[in-house]
Amino acid sequence: MSEHEQHEHEEREEQVPGKGLLQGLGVTLRSMTKRSVTREYPHVQPELPPRSRGVIALLEENCTSCMLCARECPDWCIYIDSHKETIPARTEGGRERTRNVLDRFAIDYALCMYCGICIEVCPFDALFWSPEFEYAEGNLLDMTHERDRLRDWMPSVPAPPAEVANAEPAKEVSGAGPTRAGAREARNVPPRTAQAAEGDAASAPDDGQPA
């Protein structure tokens, strides 16, 4: 349609006087007969999708104080304190081991922007989305949830989605097989170079962590 034609078309529509006025009345009358969109929230609970992102829950046992979440957080709203403890050697003459013990894990929801990056980066499944959202506070400082409170959100975390039949197995599942090599063979991956294998060995202790 050329510009001229379009102009003519508009003029033709204008030819019925008051048409727009009547259309306007129709719009308001029609929206009156439709259901209103108002949600009476505090009195009627909203129907949220089951995996809506309300609050972040912490499964403390899975946390290794690796600090990945705290470092990736764009708002720097995760606080982690930890110290190292020495575990005596299990066998005579063996080497003593050290491990991290979590002292403090807190998320400041006054700063959090609910991006979910901490949950994405956590290598040990210690952080989860929970659909709970009613934790507003009168005092800003109370928006910082310490680890006990973060732990309390855990029961509200929905179960992971069912696996899709015939889909490629998830990395977490296929990687946690009896041996890495076996899993690699199962996936028909060619053996890696020596350098890559060395890197693999360095990260091997990870496999021992509880999933």
């Binding site: 308001t28 009358l29 929206s31 009156m32 439709k34 209103s36 969109v37 108002t38 009476e40």
Partner: peptide
């Protein structure tokens, strides 16, 4: 007026 504006 409320219902015409999709309110309650």
């Amino acid at each position: 007026m409320a219902h015409m504006q999709s309110r309650l």
